[in-house]
């Protein structure tokens, strides 16, 4: 058996899909060939690590009870029992697919359901940051950022003023949020990465579950979602979502009132 044949069916072998007769020549090849053996060891370890990484908590007791109730009712749903968050369904999916898209609600959610959208934003910025994906605009020039976005988003992108002298703007990128364009600004502040999404102000109202009344006045709201802190506010004709792993007090103090 050649290496290319071995490589071709290594997956089936490691997944236990080959019967004894098909396994034998592959095993014989692996005995002889160190590179293929290393490949097999890697594949095996990868499967093991995936299994460990994907391990999660058991289904919540609440869900178990809901299923029992559902069976007892013969499959009729009780709408009240559903968890909130439905409107936000596509968000995590889009982010998961590696697409820089966050779905914004067509209808304003009646309940506090912005969490998934914000988690997706956080994950998107973490992913961008980690992958060192190139920014559309590099560096800290306010003017180049403003002019880059001037014909791309329907609001003026003003840079947030952080209460931190060491705040360093790394650059900006155009982000597509549910078909609407938004500006993504990447900052580094004292070792922490801070992401700022500048978007249509109506989004802020939807995300914080508040009526967009009092627009024009700067109202800073904090939310914590999945270990990330978010500060939301509207300023001028744009909305701002600031997110970071830094602690709440520091982040809120950074934005100020």
């Amino acid at each position: 058996m050649s290496c290319s044949e071995s490589e071709r069916f290594l997956d089936a072998f490691l997944d236990g899909e080959l019967d004894e007769a098909a396994r034998a020549p592959l095993e014989a090849h692996l005995q002889r060939c160190a590179p293929c053996r290393a490949q097999a060891a890697f594949g095996q370890r990868l499967r093991q690590r995936v299994r460990e990484a994907a391990a999660c908590d058991p289904a919540p007791e609440r869900l178990r009870q809901q299923v029992r109730a559902l069976v007892a009712q013969g499959g009729k749903t009780s709408v009240a029992a559903r968890p909130a968050g439905r409107q936000w369904w596509g968000i995590a999916l889009a982010a998961a697919a590696g697409l820089a898209i966050v779905v914004l609600p067509r209808v304003r959610p009646a309940t506090d359901t912005g969490a998934a959208a914000m988690a997706a934003m956080a994950e998107q910025s973490v992913q961008w940051h980690r992958s060192r994906a190139p920014l559309d605009v590099q560096g800290a020039s306010t003017e180049s950022i403003r002019s880059f976005f001037s014909d791309k988003v329907p609001f003026a992108v003003r840079l947030p003023r952080f209460h931190a002298p060491q705040a360093q703007l790394e650059g900006a990128r155009l982000s597509s949020l549910g078909g609407q364009q938004a500006a993504y600004l990447s900052y580094r502040i004292g070792g922490d990465h801070v992401s700022v999404f500048v978007l249509d102000p109506s989004v802020i109202a939807a995300l914080s579950g508040q009526d967009p009344t009092g627009a024009g006045r700067v109202q800073v709201r904090w939310r914590g979602v999945r270990g990330y802190n978010f500060v939301l506010y509207a300023h001028g004709n744009a909305g701002y979502v600031v997110t970071s792993e830094m602690d709440r007090t520091r982040l809120v103090r950074l934005i100020g009132e």
């Binding site: 289904a59 919540p60 869900l63 809901q66 968050g85 995590a92 998961a96």
Partner: peptide, 28 residues
């Protein structure tokens, strides 16, 4: 099989409430 179904739903939706919602819909 609820734990397994919920676990998969969680990895697909990446959110607890959405996973519960998906499992419920599945059961319906």
């Amino acid at each position: 099989h609820l734990d397994g179904l919920y676990g998969l739903a969680l990895k697909l939706t990446r959110s607890g409430p959405d996973a519960e919602d998906l499992v419920q819909d599945t059961m319906v």
